[in-house]
Amino acid sequence: MSEFQPKIVAFVCNWCTYAGADLTGTSRIKYSPNVRIVRFPCTGRIDYMLLTKAFASGADGIIVSGCHPNDCHYTSGNFYARRRWIVFKKLCDFMGIDTRRIVFSWVSAAEGSKWADIVNTTNEEIIKLGPYDSYHKLSTQDILE
């Protein structure tokens, strides 16, 4: 599996990170094509169930990204999201779900190069970790066991 190309899903907010990723484009900064971006109005809207769904459906890595604290278009959505991630991460850790595969970041609309960095470093990290077989297997292998 030297040619392992991970599947990475990025859950981003419309106002900061989506716009930041647009800027990466207009600045023509290259990054790995292994990422697929799902647009949300706000990080506050991102449901943790979608993260586990993504893993179950075959994602090897997840990026969750939104506006920096105090920059939220809706003032506080990212603060509630952050709290939820703090708790969710704790639960995942406790349940043995590999949180190295979930990258949380703040990328503003001005941080086009940061977005490329986040994607590239996540991609490299996930390549090192390999496919997330243990979770994928849950949803595929054992259904009739």
């Binding site: 604290p69 105090n70 506080s76 603060f79 509630y80 952050r82 709290r83 939820r84 991630w85 703090i86 708790v87 991460k89 949180t99 990258v103 949380f104 970041s105 703040w106 986040i118």
Partner: peptide, 29 residues
């Protein structure tokens, strides 16, 4: 983490329906 405990208060309390600006976020890049 949030100094919040269920079942001590009869009026609204819920750790996840609240936030502070200084919530610890050392894992967020």
């Amino acid at each position: 983490e949030f100094d919040s405990e269920a079942g001590l208060n009869s009026v609204f309390t819920s750790a996840l329906s609240a936030y502070t600006v200084v919530d610890k976020e050392n894992f967020i890049k």
